[in-house]
Amino acid sequence: MLELETFKTVVKHTPLVSIDLIVRNSRGQVLLGKRKNRPAKDYWFVPGGRILKDESFANAFSRLIKQELGLDQADHVFKGIYQHFYEDNFSIEDFSTHYVVLAYELSSSDGLSNLPEEQHAEYRWFDESELLASSSVHEHCKWYFQERKQADI
């Protein structure tokens, strides 16, 4: 991990590459966590995380499903590339955050246990229509369930 000041410089001047995990249970509901940290603090959002320097996509995916969901493996489908722009960042300093996001959808049992609480205060399963209608679900999270919100490339 980078030292705090170095990481601030990276976030201030470059996009971050991340993986978001769209997890569905047997009823088709989507797992969301209520974010504790900026950006998107206090909004419901899918689990996920950054790809680390010198980490392959496959290794990042494996690490993130283990850290974020407690899973050793998961069948998954690539959903696309998205860009998330935030006016704030993880610190209290005044600069934006830009993510290039690789979104993956996977299925899991309803009984995910031991979900981490570092980034999310609580978790719950949402029906897709419910999350799209909710003002407490972040706009960027809703894009995964709307037409043509992927990055234009």
Rank of each mutant, 00 (worst) to 15 (best):
L16G: 02
F90H: 08
V46A: 08
T6R: 12
L102D: 01
H76R: 12
F145G: 01
E128H: 03
S96V: 04
E105I: 04
P116I: 04
V10N: 08
L69W: 08
A60W: 09
F57S: 06
K34G: 04
L4V: 11
Y144P: 00
V137I: 02
Y104E: 01
E122T: 15
Y99Q: 14
L16W: 04
S129K: 15
E128T: 12
G49T: 07
D88V: 04
K142H: 05
D152N: 10
D42I: 12
T97D: 11
S113Q: 10
H140Y: 10
R63I: 08
D110Y: 06
D42N: 14
L131D: 00
F126A: 03
E87F: 12
C141I: 00
Y82W: 14
S96K: 10
V17Y: 14
F95T: 02
L31A: 00
A151T: 14
R27E: 15
E122H: 08
W44I: 04
K34I: 10
S91C: 10
L21I: 02
R38Q: 06
R27V: 06
D42S: 13
Y144I: 00
G48A: 08
Y86L: 06
H76N: 11
K8F: 11
A121F: 10
H140N: 13
F85Q: 13
P116D: 09
T14E: 12
I51R: 06
N25T: 12
D72H: 09
I65V: 12
D127E: 14
R50W: 11
S107L: 13
L115I: 05
I65T: 01
E55T: 10
L2V: 11
K12Y: 02
R35D: 02
A103Q: 01
W125K: 02
S109E: 15
Y86A: 08
A74Q: 06
A133K: 15
S26F: 06
H120G: 00
N89I: 08
Q119Y: 11
R38M: 05
A121K: 14
K8S: 09
V17H: 09
G33V: 01
Q67K: 12
D75H: 12
R50S: 13
Y123F: 13
D20P: 02
E3Q: 13
Y43E: 01
N25Y: 03
I22C: 02
N25H: 04
I19W: 00
N59V: 09
G80R: 09
R27I: 06
F78E: 03
P116F: 05
F145K: 04
K79N: 04
G70Y: 10
S135F: 12
L16M: 13
F126T: 02
V101G: 01
Q29M: 12
V137L: 03
V11G: 03
K36G: 03
G80C: 06
V100T: 10
E139V: 03
F45P: 00
H98M: 10
N59G: 08
I51G: 00
H84Q: 15
T6I: 12
K41G: 03
E55V: 08
Y43Q: 02
E118Q: 13
D152C: 11
S135D: 15
L132M: 09
Y82S: 07
S129L: 11
A151R: 07
E117N: 09
E139C: 04
I153F: 15
K142Y: 05
A58S: 14
H76T: 08
R148E: 15
